[in-house]
Design a binder for these strands. Structure first.
Length: 569
RNA sequence: UGCCCGAUGGUGUAAUGGUAGCACGACAGAUUUUGAUUCUGUUUGCCAAGGUUCGAGUCCUUGUCGGGCAACCA
């Protein structure tokens, strides 16, 4: 009984921990690393950050927050052929935008090249590394396969002095690319492929975006990463599952250099997978390079910058990361969860505005010609303190073409011949007549209105629907871009035989609507926030493509729409 | 024929040997001047077989299924 009570109290005082928080809690309890918690987010600057990185960012910075620790931003820039400053700039911007602060702890693995070089010397001196002359094919052959042990390199027992000399000359630039390699001397028969004398340094006469031409030898990930963690005092090095088999190597390198009680620890978690979405940087790069999209920040891209341009908010992405949780099992998250997160945020925070995407003119025949009036509309029902906005109303308005049906099915609540609906914030109107052109297309709907039903005057008459509308003479003409999924299959990575993932691209993933109508209150509106186009969805101004008098809106996400479901049935 | 990791509703994620809970989805109802939101309710789950135990989602064994590992990438 007492046990149960204690447990309930504990449960009340803290939310349940994910497995990483549990590990850290245990480490803290054991007093490891002087009870410090220090994490890091370590991207390679070879592409833009995407929603999968957001999970890692939220995790690493979140961990440092909950344990009162620190989190570094570290660029893992050890392979100059793929890296560029454009990418480091975008990464810094995206992490900052997401709402995380690395303070003065912006580091680069390339800052440690000299230290890493000295570690390598130490390795050689201890007889734990050697200079190898095998070429790539030989390296592969000598490595064996997962089921067949490898064979030792003929250069494996080169004397320490010779290794030292050769390695120094590698650094000095005496040899061309590929001539020599520094390898760790571990175990060519290890069941773990990564322990079969892994490469530590390779020669690469390539300009590095930060160190320029100072170096012509570059360290490999396994060597550089763990030791960079060590140099920075990282306590918990959180990475994705595919590095799990690297952990013995991570620890091996540490064993060679550590001379204190402090030791960083690698912990792996399952990366984010989203259906209908491609997450591989290599593939995203292909989309950009081969112009399937307009750039890394194309609003259809799963990049942070793409989502931002699409109108996603930092909070919505953080909430999403929180909601999907962290574990070690493979997962496939439904994009609808991401969409839920942005709807949740925007519903609370986005100002309401009326717009008509596919306008058809509606004339109120008994409304005096030339007369206009100003109506009050709610800015945001979730935030009454924001008050009201004033929208003009007149004899001619635009309504959505979809909001009228000449021959409506049973479940259609909106306007139809002889039927009454309310124009939101205005009056109840009744459809009297439909005018069509010679092709049968409706060009004008003629209605009458009931002056006694003005909104806000205590009218109690109920109608089944309230339509959004925009007054014709004052309407702003805008362009709206509607985005659909970039890929129309759940798993875009799988493609038909002989084709690649690009064959899954949805050719209709962007639809541009011109001459949409927007209420005039939006003139000069801020581009850094989302708006709800009432009954249509959430939109944001594209500050990149909008000009002074030509506003372009991107659709962020639709509203949940039970009418479209009813239609299908 | 190797090594490492994992397996809880449709999708994710909790439980730390003691009542399988939460979120999203789905479904139903209420409210609604957005067919939105909000609110209420319902639904569906421990991979399998053994073992340990008073008691197993949790520990052990075996099996099954899934993922990862053979770049001079990270």
């Amino acid at each position: 009984m007492a046990d149960i009570n204690d447990k309930e109290k504990a449960g009340d005082s803290k939310e349940s921990l994910n497995f990483i928080e549990q590990i850290i809690t245990d480490d803290l309890q054991e007093g490891k690393n002087d009870s410090r918690v220090h994490t890091r987010f370590p991207p390679e600057p070879n592409g833009y950050l995407h929603i999968g990185h957001a999970k890692s960012i939220c995790l690493n910075f979140g961990l440092s927050n909950t344990f009162n620790g620190k989190c570094n931003l570290r660029f893992d820039d050890t392979n100059p052929v793929k890296e560029d400053t454009e990418y480091v700039d975008s990464i810094r911007e995206d992490v900052k935008w997401l709402g995380f602060d690395w303070q003065d702890r912006e580091f680069y693995a390339s800052d440690y090249f000299e230290k890493l070089y000295q570690f390598a010397i130490k390795l050689i001196q201890k007889g734990k590394a050697y200079v190898c002359e095998l070429n790539p094919e030989q390296i592969r052959d000598f490595r064996g396969t997962p089921t067949v042990p490898g064979t030792e390199s003929p250069y494996r027992n080169r004397p320490v002095e010779e290794n030292l000399d050769l390695f120094q000359r590698m650094r000095a630039g005496e040899f061309e690319d590929g001539k020599y390699l520094l390898r760790a001397k571990i175990d060519m028969a290890s069941p773990n492929m990564h322990m079969r004398d892994p490469i530590v340094y390779r020669i690469r006469h390539t300009h590095h975006h930060r160190t320029g031409d100072n170096w012509c030898i570059y360290p490999m990930y396994d060597f550089a990463h763990g030791l960079s963690d060590y140099i920075e005092g990282i306590t918990h090095s959180v990475c994705t599952l595919e590095f799990e088999v690297h952990r013995p190597l991570y620890d091996w390198f540490l064993d060679q250099v550590i001379d204190s009680d402090y030791r960083p620890r690698q912990i792996e978690f399952a990366r984010l997978n989203l259906n209908y979405t491609i997450m591989s940087k290599r593939k995203l790069l292909k989309l950009v390079e081969e112009k399937y999209v307009s750039g890394w920040d194309d609003p259809r891209m799963p990049t942070i910058s793409g989502l931002r341009r699409r109108g996603y908010t930092p909070a919505s992405i953080r909430n999403f990361a929180e909601r999907i949780g962290v574990a070690k099992r493979e997962n496939l998250i439904d994009v609808s969860l991401l969409e839920f997160s942005i709807r949740e945020d925007l519903n609370k925070n986005a100002n309401r505005v009326m717009a008509v995407l596919d306008p058809v003119k509606l004339v109120i025949t008994n409304y005096p010609e030339g007369q206009t009036e100003t109506l009050e509309a709610t800015i945001n029902p979730e935030k009454p303190e924001l008050g009201k906005r004033e929208v003009p109303f007149g004899r001619e308005v635009y309504i959505e073409r979809d909001d009228f049906m000449e021959d409506p099915p049973k479940k259609f609540f909106r306007l139809a011949p002889g039927r009454e609906v309310r124009l939101k914030y205005a009056y109840i109107i009744k459809c009297e007549e439909v005018i069509k052109d010679e092709t049968g297309k409706i060009t004008e709907i003629r209605c009458t209105y009931d002056p006694e039903t003005k909104s806000g005057t205590g009218c109690t008459r109920k109608v089944k629907a309230a339509l959004h509308w925009v007054e014709a003479s004052t309407a702003l003409d805008i362009e709206v871009r509607m985005f659909d999924r970039l890929f129309n299959v759940e798993n875009p990575d799988t493609a038909e035989e002989g084709k690649d993932f690009t064959s899954n691209i949805n050719p209709n993933s962007v639809k541009v609507l011109t001459h949409c109508k927007l209420e005039p209150t939006m003139k000069g509106a801020a581009s850094d926030q989302g708006y709800q186009f009432e009954r249509l969805g959430y939109f944001c101004i594209d500050s990149k493509d909008s000009k002074d008098d030509a506003m372009v809106f991107n659709r962020t996400v639709t509203l949940k729409d039970s009418w479209s479901k009813a239609k299908k049935k």
